[in-house]
């Protein structure tokens, strides 16, 4: 088991290196630092001095991969690749290009608001959707199932942004139940969290419930379910003890992988509700074309995804004895 985990972690390293090389190519080779400087400083009133100055301030005045003018190990170390890309492995994200703040610090403080919304949506959502899907499976081929699918398909056809706008309009503007946007630290945050969480739940409802229903129906047609019924078990017990337990395997594949990513929050939700989380941080960085922040978020996102993959593998060992006793 432990060896298995170590192996999984080792698999992650080449992938992270790949991500790093890819982002490096994207950010420094497709466009040179000069181009970026010109862009940041505004195309019109740019002088070579201003460009050099901008690059020096941010450490982009080094060569990309190989520093011929340096000595010894510094030929490799004193390059953009080493100082800006490889150091991400140490979780050293550097400073933002737009306001010079420490990115690592921002991430550490902003992940909590993100998490405070993403986590409840994830947990409550999973429970709700699975329950709803089980009900649809229980009443399969009846009017209830048909109506449930219809609701799901309709809900799926609505963009998240409409759910947010609609929610804000109804709850905040018409009913005056919650503040439209903003955030408060600590326990006082609940007033600001409630609506985004509710909207998140509604927005994810259609797609997830329908997907789980498909999984359940696929399991329901298997032979072992017939065996369970042949034992005289009630349909509810068959669904929960047999179908659900087997369906957990495909469900976990899609679900566990997103857990680490919850820290990153949702771009759209946070921006609409003015939550000072990592999602809105990313959006602001995109808006101000702050490449250092975007680069850090890309790396962090990949890292969390890979952690998610490893967690998925671990979760398999919990539900699937075939893997547990490998």
């Amino acid at each position: 088991m432990l060896r298995y985990l170590i192996r999984r972690v080792l698999y992650a390293i080449p992938i992270l290196i790949g991500v790093n090389v890819l982002t490096f190519t994207l950010f420094f080779i497709v466009n040179s630092p000069d181009d970026m400087a010109r862009m940041q400083l505004g195309v019109k009133r740019v002088t070579p001095e201003a460009i050099d100055n901008w690059k020096r301030e941010r450490g982009y005045d080094r060569p990309l991969l190989w520093n011929g003018s340096a000595q010894g190990i510094d030929r490799v170390r004193d390059t953009i690749f080493f100082t800006h890309s490889l150091r991400l492995f140490k979780f050293d994200f550097g400073t933002a290009e737009s306001d010079g703040r420490d990115i690592g610090h921002e991430i550490r403080t902003r992940m909590w608001p993100s998490l405070s919304i993403a986590l409840p949506v994830f947990i409550v959502g999973l429970a709700t959707y699975v329950t709803f899907a089980l009900l649809m499976a229980l009443f399969r081929a009846t009017f209830l199932d048909f109506a449930g699918v219809l609701v799901c398909v309709t809900a799926m056809a609505i963009s998240t942004m409409f759910y947010i706008i609609g929610g804000q309009f109804l709850v905040c503007k018409l009913w005056n139940l919650a503040p439209i946007s903003g955030f408060a630290p600590g326990i006082g945050a609940w007033r600001f969290i409630l609506l985004p969480v509710g909207v998140g739940l509604v927005a994810g409802f259609g797609e997830s419930s329908r997907w789980y229903r498909t999984i359940f129906l696929e399991e329901i047609n298997k032979d072992y379910v017939r065996t369970a019924r042949a034992k005289g078990l009630s349909e509810g017990r068959v669904l929960v003890h047999h179908v659900l337990r087997n369906a957990l395997i495909p469900i976990l594949t899609g679900v566990v992988v997103v857990i680490p990513g919850l820290f990153l929050g949702s771009l759209v939700t946070e921006s609409f509700f003015g939550i000072p989380g990592l999602g809105s941080y990313t959006i602001d960085a995109i808006g101000s074309q702050d490449f250092a922040v975007v680069r850090s978020m890309v790396f962090l996102g990949s890292l969390l995804y890979i952690v998610g993959l490893i967690l998925t593998d671990i979760s398999y060992t919990l539900v699937d004895p075939r893997i547990r006793f490998e």
């Binding site: 992938i15 790949g18 991500v19 890819l22 982002t23 994207l26 950010f27 497709v30 466009n31 181009d35 970026m36 010109r38 862009m39 195309v43 990513g261 990153l264 771009l267 990313t282 995109i286 074309q289 490449f291 975007v294 680069r295 978020m297 890309v298 996102g301 990949s302 995804y305 890979i306 993959l309």
Partner: peptide, 24 residues
């Protein structure tokens, strides 16, 4: 490797880079 990068971020990074290219 490609799918490990969150889609929106990869798209954002690429589009930003393209913007720089188009501006220059």
């Amino acid at each position: 490797t490609l799918s490990s990068i969150p889609g929106v971020l990869l798209i954002a990074a690429s589009v930003l880079m393209m913007q720089v290219y188009m501006d220059t």
